[in-house]
Design a protein around this nucleic acid. Structure first.
Length: 552
RNA sequence: GCGCCCGUAGCUCAGCGGAUAGAGCAAUUGACUACGGAUCAAUAGGCCGGGGGUUCAAAUCCCUCCGGGCGCACCA
């Protein structure tokens, strides 16, 4: 009896009663709100369905709950049912029905937790998308961690998904970048509005190594060489640092491709503007070309092509959006920093102007900023912390976990002192330790002759076992919710809850016999439970991109 | 001025219509010659920013005010 079975059985009971009372109710499993009560005295599972339906069925909640309860009590695997408070139905399973899950999990292994709630969806998930003119900073790092975990959770829920990095490699900032590198190569100060920083000098040194003739070239060519080589080196650095962070992008999309004019016809941007015009959301004013973004909630219309004939950044965005659809992605998710939230309406408008449904086909998630030690880190303030530095300092696991356990829309303050500690301040170690402990227990079990030869679920009667089983049962739903709500941090909070319940169980229930005690079926059955917990912790950490060590 | 996000324990934050609001840290006190003490048990700590509403039920939804953050270009 897993939660899905129980929900289905409850649904049958409730619809039956509703029909008998003459109610026209179309219920789905999601309406039943079967949940695990916080308080153990309220049973293994609770439903508030009676309070929801009392009014439509013309009765009072307690009476309806009683009627439902008496039928649910007859179900196989249900030990007892109580009606409590204003009309909650509290269900307690018998130990055998609840315990069966341990075996199921071990058998499903890394598939446990996967679900098909997003099956059939094709998703383009774009995140980080930093300018290739410098290293990734803490803000990009937060998105890298959260975006990658979101991708994993979406895939685990059945979506077909591509992780995409949009490279802003066209535009003024690339010229400024080239000029900064060339100046550094010449030993000159950073030009006005250029990029400062040691990394520019490092890039200049590498460019000079490849092209010792750089300073003998004439100015335009020297700039072109500096810019192009610097770009490649910097992009390589970004890619490497992300890979070291367990973040792999499937597609690196260059903005330049959109500007390029193929021999055969117009550039992607020209074509995009024409397509938007054909949809009827483009107009001309004062010599410029505009998109009527106000039709889609923007507070003013936006210029897509200036009066001087040059396209705005918005034009590339439009072409890029269309490219995603052309490449077969029905659903586009953008992850942007809080400093870009002004783009939300514009991007939505693009979807609408392209003939898509702005409420369904595009999703823009905004992440709040990160500060460290109370000081916000911004490029402008100059106190920027790079991904590479953070990673070397704290380690991939601690950094990914710390950034991944908070929702994106809450501002976050990290304390580097805490992140370095190998203690409970740093929950990643708490969870990893629980996982390592499941392996230690399994090793000891093997040494004591305890093996998974027998599984008798009814023996898992201890209170900590019943709690543990309840938490294990929730994992698939947690993954599903994390995917549907775009909140991968739920997986991290869940793993902490599971780790805590496991430690408490470990304290109360032994898997290996003491001294000269005999090995019993209880020991063997508990080994299944132990291994099930290890499996789920591993699955959860995998979704977060964090390693699950067998020893620490 | 307008828009978006956030105000929950001393700190960092979960919870986002359900039962007595939670975790970790910090504080106090206990538990190993029993599967790794990177653990566990216990105590203490709250007008969930203020005020109105919506309903059987509000930290959660709506309105309003007060704080804090971030944005409001024919820049990229």
């Amino acid at each position: 009896m897993n939660p899905a079975d129980l929900s289905a059985a409850l649904l049958t009971v409730v619809t039956g009663i509703a029909q008998r009372r003459g109610g026209e109710l179309r219920l789905t499993i999601d309406d039943l709100l079967l949940e695990r009560p916080r308080n153990r005295e309220h049973g293994d599972w609770a439903s508030n369905i009676a309070m929801k339906l009392a009014r439509p069925l013309g009765t009072n909640p307690r009476e309806l709950a009683g009627e439902i309860a008496s039928e649910v009590a007859k179900l196989d695997g249900v030990a007892s049912v109580d009606v409590a408070g204003p009309g909650f139905i509290n269900i307690t399973l018998d130990a055998a029905a609840a315990g069966a899950l341990a075996k199921t999990i071990v058998e499903q292994a890394d598939r446990y937790g996967h679900n098909d709630s997003l099956a059939g969806q094709t998703i383009n998930l774009e995140f980080v998308s930093a300018n290739p003119t410098g290293p990734l900073h803490i803000g990009h790092t937060r998105w890298a961690a959260l975006g990658d975990s979101l991708a994993r959770v979406l895939k685990a829920s059945g979506a077909e998904l591509v992780r995409e990095f949009y490279i802003n490699d066209a535009g003024n900032q690339m010229d400024s970048f080239a000029a900064s590198i060339l100046a550094a190569a010449k030993g000159e100060p950073t030009p006005e509005g250029g990029y400062p920083g040691q990394y520019i000098a490092d890039l200049a040194a590498r460019v000079l190594e490849t092209r010792p003739d750089l300073l003998e070239l004439d100015e335009p060519e020297a700039l072109a060489v500096s810019g192009e080589l610097g770009y490649q080196y910097q992009l390589g650095e970004i890619r490497d640092s992300l890979e070291r962070f367990n973040v792999h992008f499937d597609v690196w999309f260059s903005e330049r491709v959109l500007h390029a004019t193929p021999a055969s016809g117009p550039s992607a941007i020209d074509a995009a503007v024409d397509r938007l015009r054909a949809q009827g959301h483009v107009f001309d004013l004062d010599g410029a070309v505009w998109v009527r973004t106000t039709d889609f909630g923007d507070d003013r219309d936006r210029v897509i092509r200036r009066a001087n004939g040059i396209y705005t950044y918005f034009a590339a965005d439009a072409a890029y959006y269309l490219s995603k659809g052309d490449r077969g992605f029905a659903h586009k998710i953008y992850l942007l920093g809080a400093d870009h939230h002004g783009y939300v309406h514009r991007l939505k408008a693009l979807a609408g102007a392209a003939g898509d449904d702005p409420d369904r086909d595009i999703e823009v998630l905004i992440g709040q900023l990160v500060s460290i030690n109370g000081a916000r880190l911004s490029k402008r303030a100059g106190n920027i912390i790079e991904l590479g530095d953070l990673q070397a300092w704290l380690g991939t696991d601690a950094l990914r976990y710390s950034l991944g356990r908070y929702p994106a829309d809450s501002p976050l303050t990290l304390d580097p002192e805490v992140l370095q500690r190998r203690t409970n301040d740093n929950p990643v170690f708490y969870v990893q330790y629980a996982h390592a402990r499941t392996h230690a227990v399994a090793r000891n079990a093997a040494a004591s002759g305890v093996a998974r030869t027998v599984f008798d679920a009814g023996l898992l009667e201890h209170e900590t076992e019943s709690i543990l089983l309840g938490i294990l049962a929730e994992f698939p739903r947690v993954v599903r919710q994390a995917a549907e709500l775009r909140e991968p941090h739920r997986v991290a909070r869940y793993s902490e809850e599971l780790a805590g319940a496991y430690h408490r169980w470990y304290d109360n229930c032994r898997v290996t016999p003491l001294g000269d005690e005999d090995v019993t079926d209880l020991h063997r059955t508990r080994l299944w439970l132990n291994d099930a917990v290890g499996q789920v912790l591993r699955n959860a950490l995998e979704l977060l991109g964090v390693s699950a060590p067998e020893r620490m």
